[in-house]
Amino acid sequence: MAAMKNPPQLIEAAGITVELRRGGSGTPLLVIHSELGVPGWLESFAQLAEHYDVIVPSLPGYGRSARPDWVMDAHDLAAWVTWFARDVDLRTPVNVIGCSLGGWVAAEIATVAPQFFNKMVLVGAMGIKPERGEIFDYFLESGLTGLRRAFHRPEQSSEFMRHWGKERTPDEDDLVEQHREMTCRIAWKPYMHSLTLRHLLPGVRTPTLLVWGREDAITPIDSGEIYQRAIPRSRLVVMENCGHMPEMEKPAEFARLVENFLTG
């Protein structure tokens, strides 16, 4: 399977040891992952890797990437990502997919570094407080509850079952807790949003595709709609029968959407 061919490497970049998954060839496609970390080489990565050089670093504090104490919010992660890109000689402007918390980070980059992105895909992005509904509070529930809630039908998702559905080892449980802790450092309060971001988005010139699962039980679609109204060249696509993680719950459909957007 394509998924097995890409074990992560550890490299030195942007001041720390970084866990990096990379596969495929073609123009680079940077993926900024969610608060749940990168569980592996996803099916959607494998599909996108047929046409792109898919680059998935684990952000500081996630996976086996080191955790520097100075990374305390989404801006810090945004700056770090641009530093990472320079250190791995990533030619910019680059295409990017930002998932959930990673979407917030991507949006922050876009507001300050317009030359950094060519096209931007934001998937169930954090960063905006919805006007209707609330972002699910991971920290009032267990890690497992959050993982399950991120899917519309976890048991029917082969990606959920493969990575989070079986009995987890103590190491895997530790990783879930590690990710929760790092996410606390970044997004504790105001919870999962920036008071400033929505005011800066009208200045973003990057063509943007917003992708939301209709049944997203983590980040209300309303946030996506606010993003769409704020970013001038943006379009919101809602995927049916899909929760917070289209990149895992609907890999083929998601990959197609992204490819059409990037080539269109």
């Binding site: 920290f139 009032l140 529930e141 267990s142 929760r180 802790e181 606390c184 450092r185």
Partner: peptide, 8 residues
């Protein structure tokens, strides 16, 4: 139980 042991 996660209330008594929030992340970190």
């Amino acid at each position: 139980p996660e209330w008594m042991a929030p992340p970190g």
